[in-house]
């Protein structure tokens, strides 16, 4: 039997082309393996081979989703593979969204099995886990070996059209598909066991996890903007020059609160970004490109808004845990509320 032909999609970073300064590169098709593909091929043994690799910059993909998808699909099609693998993306947000988007697009357009992998908090996971198989990985590239250990066998099964077991066995994220099976014990016995475990504060595993729809209803619109206090917040890491509170460039453990009383413009001498997840050149040149203090001051003078709140809240949204972000915003939202802020503009990179 001939080897299963696989095309892999990776970003500019894993292709060792560059970091954020190269995140805008267009898709490119290379023969053979690049970067993580080597370890995948070793794991596949004689059964399968990554015959070509598509490389695309994360920002290019994120900013041109439809165009980039179409370009990548054409490249994949030209190789005529049996299977498509994207990533793994770990906790890289844009990369994860790109992997999910392109995997689904390839599956829909070319009707071949697809597989990707990422960390459970990657925004790409929630977006695509119902459409495609996404292996749950660790949150950084240090988990590559572990990711390949799970992804390679699942990829082979998918490519061969073998039956896929439950998510907890195969290592993919639950996709909501239910399969009939016979359990040794009847439902009543299992339910009573779970109840007893719960009453004794012992761990138990539900057979029917409730979906987590964490949605917040929109607040009523602002009625009188000309007298409203508007606050600016950002996940783009804008901080005073020198980053005095040392907000981390990724996986931030804190947020900053900075006074902008009398500040008309976030100039390069006074402000910069601490964010490590995008090319900082443009924000360092002019931080208003991320946090528009200059234009909001204009609006304030023109009477379009009552006033700009004299502080802004900022953190680095790069690989930062959902729980941390939640805690930061809970805290500073309460402060803004107490200070009479009427509405908020949050900017993200």
């Amino acid at each position: 039997m001939s080897k299963i032909k696989i095309v892999q999609y990776i970003n500019q970073f894993f292709a060792q082309i560059g970091g954020e300064e190269k995140a805008d590169i267009k898709p490119e098709l290379r023969e053979g393996v690049v970067g993580p593909g080597l370890a995948f091929n070793q794991a596949f043994g004689d059964e399968a081979e990554i015959v070509a690799t598509v490389i695309c910059g994360d920002s290019y993909f994120g900013e041109n989703i439809e165009k980039a998808s179409a370009e990548v699909i054409e490249m994949v099609k030209s190789v005529n593979p049996d299977m498509f693998i994207a990533g793994p993306a770990f906790n890289a947000g844009r990369y994860g969204v790109a992997c999910g988007t392109i995997s689904k697009a390839v599956k829909d357009a070319l009707n071949i099995p697809v597989l990707t992998g990422m960390y459970v908090e990657n925004p790409g996971a929630d977006m695509f886990k119902k459409d495609i198989y996404i292996v749950s990985t660790k949150n950084s590239a240090a988990g590559m070996r572990d990711a390949i250990k799970k992804m390679a066998p699942l990829a082979l099964k998918l490519a061969k059209g073998e039956p896929i077991g439950a998510s907890c066995v195969e290592g993919y994220m639950p996709n909501g598909v239910r399969v009939n099976l016979f359990e040794k014990e009847c439902g009543a016995a299992r339910a009573v066991k779970m109840l007893v475990a719960k009453l004794n504060n012992k761990p138990f595993e539900t057979e029917f996890p409730m979906p987590d729809f964490d949605r917040v209803d929109p607040n009523p619109a602002v009625k009188d903007m000309a007298h409203a206090t508007v606050a600016l917040c950002t996940s783009g890491g804008i901080v005073p020059h020198g980053n005095p509170d040392r907000i981390e460039s990724s996986s931030a453990s804190k947020y900053g609160e900075y006074d902008i009383t009398g500040v008309e413009d976030l100039d390069a001498a006074g402000w910069e970004t601490a964010h490590g997840g995008y090319d900082p050149v443009y924000a360092n040149e002019d931080a208003d490109r991320v946090l528009p203090v200059d234009v909001m001051r204009e609006f304030e003078k023109a009477g379009k808004i009552g006033k700009l709140y004299n502080k802004f809240y900022t953190t680095v949204g790069n690989g930062t845990a959902v729980l941390s972000s939640k805690k930061f915003a809970e805290e500073y939202a309460a402060k803004m509320k107490a200070d009479g802020v009427d509405c908020v503009i949050m900017t993200s990179t």
């Binding site: 939640k326 809970e330 939202a333 309460a334 908020v344």
Partner: peptide, 8 residues
């Protein structure tokens, strides 16, 4: 979280 706190 900002929305939850009651701020549009």
């Amino acid at each position: 979280e900002i929305e939850r706190a009651g701020l549009p």
